[in-house]
Every structure is written in structure tokens, then in C-alpha cells.
């Protein structure tokens, strides 16, 4: 089943007075539960593509359909609800809230969905178990290693059982061993829970874990 369909997607930015074309007509289909890797060098448009799929930004031209709905037609409020319910994000810099513990960071998306405290407790505990961080539940991000922080970020993304998780360079800030462990968690979740991932990387070792790869060069999709 096709979950995401992208048609002739364009995105332009103004960098000062200079117009920059980050995406120049990308067409892509993503099937539910896939582990899709987007490859490309820095500035190729990988992050921009993820941002548009995740409803963080509007395209200049073209369409992103998610589960049959054109995201460009959703207003800001609807787009916020879409992100809260359907999408999980994992960022290169982990982006955990420093004042919250690992448990509370994971709990946050559930609070936005108005889940009861009891349900939140159960779901967060399960997510922590799935990323192997049960004993670190009450640690603040500053008390965790890079790999542990990224695993908390993964738990935060999976805890609400979203249709799709978008991971932007999830291992770029990690050493090889830790990166391997984090990828292992993602692959395991993909296989066991059928959690769909679209992740970006320029590291071939990381991309090998994807079930399918897409290559972006200067905002265009290329065939290898």
C-alpha cells in the first residue's frame, strides 16, 4: 500500500536575494512499512524532502500525498495535527528537551495526543524497553551518552505508533559502533512493529540497512 506519493516536488528558498532551488522536481512513492534510505551529499535536498513529507514546510510546486491526502491543502492547524498523529521525527542533533528526563521526553508526544497519565506510563515504559533504556528513564539528556540520547529520540518517535518515522541523518553525530547500535534498533522496530522509516544519510554503511534507496543530486532524484 502506498503511504506517501510525491509528484514533481519543487522547493525554492531565498538566501538573501539569491533564489536557491533545493528540490527540482522529485517524484517518489513510499510503501507503508518500508525502510527507505535517501542518499545524497550535503545540500542535495535530503532534509528539505523530509521536511516536506513531514509537513514542516509547504512546497513551492508539486504535491505530497500522505495516505491519499494532499498536504499542501492542509492549513497550519491541520498540519500540526497531522504531525502529532501520523509522523515521528528523529533528528541528527537528537533535539531532546534538556529540562525533561528521558521518560518525560518520550511522554511529551503522548501529552499532545491527550492520552491519560496511565496510558502514557504504559506506552513510555514499552518504548523505553524497545530501545533498551528502561534503567535510564529518569536521566536528563545531559546525563546520557550520544547513542542513548538518539535512542531516547527514537523512543519519542515510536511511542505514539506513527504511520511513518522521518529520520534526518540519525547517526551522523555518533561514532561507528553507536551508530550501528542505533540502526539496529531502527531495523528491529521496522521488522517487529512494521514501523515505517524514511531516513537520510550520506554514509553508505548506514544506507545498506535500508530496504530501498533513493539518490538525490542537486535536488533531483537520480538513478544509480
Amino acid at each position: 500500500m502506498i503511504l506517501v506519493q510525491i509528484k514533481d516536488l519543487h522547493k525554492e528558498f531565498l538566501l538573501g536575494s539569491q533564489k536557491v532551488e533545493a528540490l527540482r522536481g522529485v517524484d517518489l512513492e513510499y510503501a507503508d512499512g518500508e525502510m527507505l534510505g535517501i542518499r545524497g551529499s550535503s545540500g542535495s535536498g535530503k532534509t528539505t524532502l523530509l521536511n516536506l513529507i513531514g509537513g514542516l514546510d509547504y512546497p513551492t510546486r508539486g504535491q505530497v500525498f500522505f495516505d491519499g491526502h494532499d498536504l499542501a491543502l492542509l492549513n497550519r492547524k491541520k498540519l500540526t495535527e497531522f504531525r502529532a498523529h501520523k509522523i515521528g521525527f528523529i533528528f541528527q542533533t537528537f533535539n531532546l528537551i534538556p529540562t525533561l528526563s528521558a521518560f518525560e521526553n518520550i511522554e511529551y508526544p503522548l501529552m499532545l495526543l491527550n492520552e491519560s497519565p496511565k496510558t502514557r506510563q504504559q506506552m513510555v515504559t514499552l518504548a523505553l524497553e524497545q530501545v533498551g533504556l528502561s534503567t535510564f528513564a529518569h536521566h536528563r539528556p545531559a546525563q546520557l551518552s550520544g547513542g542513548q540520547r538518539q535512542r531516547v529520540a527514537i523512543a519519542r518517535a515510536i511511542v505514539k505508533n506513527p504511520r511513518l518515522i522521518l529520520a534526518d541523518e540519525p547517526t551522523a553525530n555518533l561514532d561507528v559502533k553507536t551508530a550501528g547500535e542505533v540502526l539496529e534498533v531502527m531495523v528491529r522496530l521496522n521488522k517487529s512493529n512494521r514501523t515505517g522509516f524514511i531516513f537520510t544519510s550520506h554514509d553508505q554503511l548506514v544506507l545498506q540497512r535500508a530496504s530501498r534507496q533513493v539518490h538525490l543530486v542537486d535536488g533531483r532524484q537520480t538513478k544509480d
Binding site: 497550519r76 500540526t80 502529532a84 521525527f89 533535539n95 511529551y108 508526544p109 499532545l112 519519542r156
Partner: peptide, 16 residues
């Protein structure tokens, strides 16, 4: 600012 971006990405509304 970065934190606000993260919260908005997670689905936090402007009003919240």
C-alpha cells in the same frame, strides 16, 4: 528557538 522548532515538529500547536 531550536526547542520550539522541535516541539512544533512533534505536533505542538502555536497556541500551546
Amino acid at each position: 528557538t531550536g526547542e520550539i522548532g522541535t516541539l512544533r515538529a512533534l505536533g505542538e500547536s502555536e497556541a500551546s
